[in-house]
Amino acid sequence: MRDVVTVRLRVNGVQYERVVEPRLLLSDFLRESLGLTGTHVGCEHGICGCCTVMVDGLTVRSCLMFAVQSDGAEVKTIEGLAEEGKLHPLQDAFGEHHALQCGFCTPGMLFTALEVLRENPRPTDREIREGIAGTICRCTGYHHIVEAIKAAAQRMAQEPK
């Protein structure tokens, strides 16, 4: 018999309960068990950052966490970043500044950028680059991503909290 565990958690505000193997990675759980395919898997060894999601408000690489470890947690994936159909300022700025091409790293990059701005609402270019260095993008050469994050920072500073 395979060992199984029950996982109860909230993803993008929705409560889920699933019975899974302990070894099921959070990335696979989100994609396969919950059908939230917006989280992408690029390396499964914690380098590329594509699978980055928020767990209890902090970015994590979902390929380096077992689903069972998110029991009781509040998870946010790309599907939950836009609220009530309105793009998050970062999403909008990414579109405006052509900060994505193939879009595969984009979900992870957005959460990475979100955390950069949360911790440092007015980052310098260097701080942005260091902040997003844990997510690899092979299309953009990063320049447009940096531009978009700067633009989003400005917009977010103007928006009422």
Binding site: G46, V60, L64, E115, G131, G134
Partner: peptide
């Protein structure tokens, strides 16, 4: 150490 996502965990 690595990157913020790594240090978060």
């Amino acid at each position: 150490i690595g990157h913020p996502q790594i240090r978060n965990r």
